[in-house]
Nucleic acid binder design. Structure first.
Lengths: 225, 225
DNA sequence: TTATTTTGATAGTATTACTATTAATTTAGA
DNA sequence: TCTAAATTAATAGTAATACTATCAAAATAA
């Protein structure tokens, strides 16, 4: 589907571009695997270096700290998701159809897509589900934001919100609606897997089908469409 | 309003009940202050002990680790919120009115209420906004869940979801809807303060008013009511 | 008043989150 | 292809974190 998908991220995210070198690409590829396995709090550059057969000091030349790596991975995911959405909706004239397709993509994009290069999207999605909100729920949000670290997230929300506004130009909360839907898509999947009494997804049919139907009702209900 | 509000939490949350001793109560009171000031990741029992004029070892006798303290504080908040909701809605017959009142409470309960005993609810709410999801987004969710650490959160969601079901018994996703709304109330406030382009709250009128209006449209829209 | 519990004081450990230095190796340019 | 520059590996080191252990002092309960 995307043989040479090139994703350019804010260069403030890293000290040295990890896509530019072999070590950098292995850092990302294996980093995703390790964070997925042991979780972000247990993850350290030392452990990753051991697994990669490299050294802690070498990895610290790519990212200031592990938090920047997380923000990088999450940004990469938002950018990739934005690409998927544009790719699948670019010839669809009706904004309702575009919004429906978009909701479908963000509930199951990670499944359909063949693995891009050295990145395991399914593992990355598990990381996004579990860790994405930690990228901004920190003491330094404001500083990080000033550096533009959340640009991809904002871009994605703005893009989908524009479709919502096309459907109902009078609706006053398109950004809130889309950021909520984006968050809900991940949270409800997490709840279905770990805290099922906080959701209803999976009680009838597949979890992803339920989440899609829930989101569709939520978004179109709010838009009064 | 609640002179002797007694909140009983799952005793798995702590090693020794912090409400039972003077040191324990100071731990909670000052712990809230310190987490609010420096954030959960920078927070340590050593720093808290210094501020309290106690010792690290003494505090570790109350909580296994700082994560348990966070879960305790968040659980306390959910329990307190549930109490506020029951208190303000207990004589309201129409479920729509009850749901509207509930949404109002969860967007601004922390403002109206006078400080309970030694707990600063405004600070606690800031902690809930910023840190609550970290209480379950961990590697040990399943274990923690088996111990019942998320009971208060579930109880709150179930209670409000029941009202939603009363309004529209055919609606298939009441738990998803309410857990989403609960999360959105906090997230949108955080976005308004730190990442305003992810929300619309505050562009017209007060942030809390906007969040309330957004949630009302979202929830009643989904319920088709 | 004695026994029990709780706290404080102190010390110690393994791990984390880095930084610094230097030597080996790779890569890029002339 | 040789040389210079950049990159990585290897090693070492530091301050802070997340605890645990021990023991004496103080408070409390029987």
């Amino acid at each position: 589907m995307n043989p040479q998908l090139r994703i350019d991220l804010n260069d403030k995210l890293y000290l040295r571009d990890p896509q530019a070198t072999d070590l950098g690409r292995r850092l990302i590829g294996q980093g995703v695997g390790l964070i997925d396995e042991i979780g972000f709090e247990q993850f350290t550059f030392k452990k990753l270096a051991q697994r990669m057969g490299s050294t802690e000091a070498s990895l610290y030349r790519y990212f200031e700290n592990k938090h920047r790596l997380l923000v990088y991975l999450v940004s990469w995911y938002w950018a990739w998701l934005g690409f998927q959405i544009r790719f699948h909706t670019h010839n669809v004239p009706d904004p309702r159809d575009r919004l429906r397709l978009t909701l479908g993509i963000l509930t199951r994009a990670h499944r359909d897509d063949p693995t891009t290069a050295d990145l395991d999207e399914a593992a990355l999605y598990r990381i996004v589900v579990r860790e994405a909100s930690k990228s901004y729920l920190t003491r330094d949000v404001d500083g990080d934001n000033r550096e533009g670290l959340f640009r991809e997230h904002k871009r994605l929300v703005a893009g989908i919100a524009a479709v919502a506004s096309e459907i109902n130009p009078a609706y006053p909360y398109p950004h809130a609606l889309i950021s909520t839907a984006l968050e809900a898509a991940r949270k409800q999947l997490f709840f279905a897997q770990h805290l099922p009494s906080l959701t209803d997804a999976g009680t009838a049919g597949s979890v992803e089908q339920s989440i899609y139907a829930f989101l569709e009702g939520l978004v179109f209900g709010a838009l009064g469409a």
